[in-house]
Amino acid sequence: MEPGRCCLPKMLPCRFWTAISKALFAEFLATGLYVFFGVGSALRWPSALPSVLQVAITINMATAMAVQVTWKVSGAHVNPAVTLAFLVGSQISLPRAVAYVAAQLAGATVGAALLYGVTPWDIRETLGVNMVRDSISTGQAVAVEVVLTLQMVLCVFASTDSRQASGSPATVIAASMAVGHLIGIYFTGCSMNPARSFGPAVIVGKFTVHWIFWVGPLTGAVLASLIYNFILFPDTKTLAQRLAILKGTAEVEKVAGVEPQKRESESNSRDTEMESVGQMA
């Protein structure tokens, strides 16, 4: 038996955990930076109150930064809604999705805590916690978050799908976030990202109508995933393949960089070589 073939089963888990550790740190870091800059742009300084355009531009650039830095490491989710959309579309395993969301929420909380620590006490107020406008009902607020997140997740899929696009998706995703904020700020302060709403809410302890900023974005993400992956650009995955991805068995192969077909062909070629040597002997 060849040494390389013996070591392969041991190498796969090691390479997988190395890759997932980097991905989790990337999600943690990117979400923290996104919350720090995004929420920071909405703080109300008396000398220069932020305009909607200013907040949208800052969100645009913060999103582009987060995506550009992490998309080759973790896929640049930086948002539990995006992670759920990829899970529904059979593009990520359930264990990895849960780990991603935990990293995103932790990063958002740390980013909000850092912003709170460096901001003067008279400027902090509610630290940019998402709130619904008085004249807007909870149903309307949820509907707005659904639509805003739906268009953003559709852009995420379109810009990261190797069948449709190539290169960094940072520009497209950042633009979709800016478009959402130009409208959504007037209704709900614009979340589109449960982690963005969660971080500041934890730091200031304000969870009034917080459920809206989970139900709306997550619903919009699921709808966008169904529309893109099953109607606009359906793939050919079988039920068995989807279950393998959900459980994570297919993902280990992908992360480790070893394709089953390639490994089988290499094994066959080695066996052929051994047979040839035996015949020559």
Rank of each mutant, 00 (worst) to 15 (best):
E251L: 07
A99I: 02
V277G: 15
L127W: 02
V172C: 09
K262M: 15
F198C: 08
F157M: 04
L115A: 10
G32R: 02
V69L: 03
P3A: 10
Q104W: 00
S93G: 14
T70W: 01
I212E: 08
P169E: 02
Q140E: 12
L24Y: 06
K22E: 06
G189A: 00
T58N: 10
N60H: 11
G32I: 02
F16M: 14
G4C: 10
T208V: 13
E145L: 12
P120I: 04
A62S: 05
D161P: 01
Q164N: 15
S225G: 07
M1H: 01
L246I: 04
D134K: 11
M274R: 15
M11A: 13
V156H: 14
G40H: 06
M280H: 13
W71S: 12
N130K: 13
K262Y: 15
S267Q: 13
K22H: 08
R163D: 03
S74M: 06
T70A: 05
V204R: 00
V146T: 13
I92M: 00
L33I: 10
P13Q: 01
A81P: 11
S41D: 03
D134C: 09
L43Q: 08
V147Q: 07
L49D: 04
P120W: 00
T249V: 09
S176R: 03
P13M: 00
V69H: 01
V35Q: 10
S265Y: 14
H181K: 12
G184M: 08
A48G: 06
Q104C: 01
G107Q: 02
L127I: 04
S159M: 12
G184D: 07
T238N: 08
P194A: 10
V69K: 00
S51I: 10
V98R: 09
E259M: 05
R44M: 12
L246Y: 07
A195D: 06
G117P: 04
R133I: 07
E251N: 07
V110N: 03
G216E: 11
V215S: 11
F187M: 06
L53I: 15
S41M: 06
L115P: 13
G107T: 05
F187A: 10
C6N: 13
R44D: 09
K254L: 12
V258D: 08
H181N: 06
G189N: 01
M192T: 02
A165E: 07
T138I: 14
P46R: 08
I92P: 01
A66M: 05
P95V: 02
Q68F: 10
P3H: 15
Q151G: 11
S166N: 15
T119W: 04
V252T: 07
A81L: 05
A112K: 15
E266T: 14
E264C: 12
L127M: 08
E264Q: 14
A244G: 02
G199K: 03
N60P: 04
L49F: 14
S21P: 00
A19T: 02
A224M: 06
G220E: 15
L84P: 11
E266Y: 13
T31L: 05
F28R: 05
F37R: 02
V144G: 14
L243Q: 08
V35P: 00
T126V: 15
N193A: 03
L94T: 05
D235G: 03
I203R: 13
Q279E: 15
G128T: 03
V52I: 10
N268I: 08
V153R: 04
A106D: 01
L114D: 01
A113C: 10
